[in-house]
Write a protein that binds this DNA or RNA. Structure first.
Lengths: 352, 352
DNA sequence: TTGTAGGCGTTATCAA
DNA sequence: TTGATAACGCCTACAA
């Protein structure tokens, strides 16, 4: 158990320089020496002190994630899946993940502090809102970053990884219209989140194409958690002219929606059609294998992996600004079918 | 924007020593000097380089969390709530949180590496199993740690924060017995996890007290996620002699259980009684305000806060080994009542 | 191919 | 109350 380079090099009868070079894979050191050094390092359980290395190199090999916490001490549940993906990349590429859980109003100051202290080499920005100040701030700080999602404007001035939410929801809506539905509800997330806004736009676009009026009474925008989904769906079902189909923006909301549907004694896929966006939340598994739902699927872990790889590439100077737009895929399940009133044989004339 | 102590001290006409002392709150520096230094630091947006400071002090002010990932790239969903709690403490006390997401079989090596690199001052151990090697390993490494939960043996040799799972489940079971139930099912987590084992023990203890035979056909032990809860409950309901009540070990499982119950057209609290353990999963909110379930409640965020505070106290030498056993509380909701066959007026003679 | 020496930015010791 | 100086452990020109 040798504490530092000095001791190790003395034991080997070599200079610190040579030992350091051997360990860091510099080409000029002879193979025999390198092998000898590596063996000795392993034998004595030596590894460089990370703080010392950082100080000497000026690189932290650490990526920061600032995670804002909302009213009820809640962290977005999708976050675990994202960091599972990103974390795998960090491991593979020798980076550390620093997570800072802060009150939403302290986020800006947290980025500033990370820069001042030279705490991280770059950060990942989560959950962009419509007019998001973070890209501008990070640019001015000179802190490399990748955004998971996009802002509404100026999204070409920085790197991002996003899902084509608009198209995904347009296609899902068209699918329902193709089945004959004309009263289609939307259980959406908060619309200050950009992804939610884009989902609504896709939904409305498809309705308009089909000549169906957008009905505000069929749209809800709220937090994407189970009880809220339940509440929204219950309200829709209690209305004068209830929907025959519903589009849900998250798996967690869908859980609540399904509950409300069942409580009303309705059969998914027969009495009412349901399509949910599915981030592949690892602890829910709502897809065709799970609850039988028809879903629009795009893995959030995958997005995490891409963000991590892009950011590290940027930090290491191998890459500039990159945009990655992932396409979600519609996976039919048993929760969709023609509206109850429509005979199965009678082909629907609606849509397209 | 001054980069380092040297520049700042030159600008002030003071030595680096004095400036450092002023900034770090040493008592020997005069108040006027200190104020002058602090003002200048703020003005020039100076803050010490964290790597340099760490190298000089030998303290990282960083806590590590090693998060094993299971088969399906899944991180325990309770984890977000835990780190929300712990993270708040880290912020308040000036610590950073380092999260390492690794394959389950690499956990040991990760701890070793954290120690070798002097990457962290201590770690939090999550999800102890029956014969857990980590406490022994960390002891031998000399890495301070706190366990969230307990192992089965030797739990007095290290600090932990745990919930009194055995008592919680015993009391919940007694509550059901008191209502007149005698066929009570248990939807438990994996029993290699210590908390799950203790929950079963509590459940069995209460049954035995009441002279009710433990029936293996009424017990399931599996992953605590929605689809699995659904599956387990469906199986129970399809059996020859179905339960009249069920005890569920997690909110996520309870979601699945509720779904299965509804699909069978049964009313919670009337046809079948349900009690769920509730970690206060922030994105579910299943308590009395939410789904109306009767729950055994103990906040996981609170546990996170205690773990963080205890570990930091240990690291800073203010505290030795501490054990904290939190009591969960039974919160009656509408999902429990007398068994269907029992007349409401007829007081049950069972239990206690 | 290996070694010498200086620097990275702090904190800590000792002296003034 | 303040300052010079030496660690802390590593990397990296530059020299040999």
């Amino acid at each position: 158990m040798l504490a530092n380079l000095k001791e190790l090099s003395e034991k080997l009868g070599l200079s610190q320089t040579t030992v350091s070079r051997a360990l860091n894979g510099y080409p000029e050191v002879s193979e025999t020496t390198r092998q000898r050094v590596i063996d000795a390092a392993r034998e004595h359980n030596y590894a460089p002190d990370s703080s010392a290395r950082r100080l000497a190199t000026g690189k932290t090999r650490t990526i920061g994630h600032v995670v804002p916490i909302s009213k009820h001490d809640m962290i977005n549940p999708h976050f675990t899946d994202f960091i599972a993906g990103a974390g795998a990349v960090y491991n593979r590429r020798g980076y550390d993940m620093l997570i800072s859980v802060v009150d939403a109003d302290k986020e800006t100051e947290t980025y500033r502090a990370m820069k001042r202290n030279r705490r991280v080499d770059g950060v990942i920005v989560h959950g962009p809102v419509a007019s998001d100040a973070r890209p501008g701030l990070l640019h001015s700080l000179g802190l490399p970053f990748v955004v998971h999602g996009r802002t509404l404007q100026d999204d070409d001035s920085y790197s991002w990884v996003d899902v084509n939410n608009r198209r995904a929801f347009a296609e899902a809506t068209r699918y329902l219209i193709g089945l004959g539905h004309r009263r289609i509800a939307l259980v959406n997330g908060w619309e200050h989140m950009v992804f939610a806004r884009r989902r609504r736009e896709g939904y409305e676009e498809a309705l308009r194409e089909a000549g169906i009026a957008v009905d505000p009474l069929l749209m809800s925008s709220n937090e994407m958690i189970e009880p809220v989904g339940h509440e929204a769906m219950t309200a829709f079902l209690a209305s004068d002219d209830p929907p025959t189909a519903v589009l849900v923006a998250s798996a967690l909301s869908a859980l609540g929606v399904m509950g409300a549907v069942r409580e009303h004694g309705l059969g998914p896929g027969t009495d009412i059609s349901i399509i949910s966006y599915d981030d592949k939340l690892s602890f829910l598994d709502i897809g065709p294998d799970g609850m039988g739902l028809t879903v629009i699927r795009s893995g959030i872990g995958e997005a995490g992996r891409h963000c991590a790889d892009m950011l590290i590439d940027m930090i290491e100077g191998r890459r500039g600004i990159v945009h990655m737009l992932l396409e979600a895929s519609l996976v039919p399940g048993t929760s969709t079918g023609p509206p109850a009133g429509v005979a199965v044989s009678g082909k629907s004339a609606a849509g397209r």
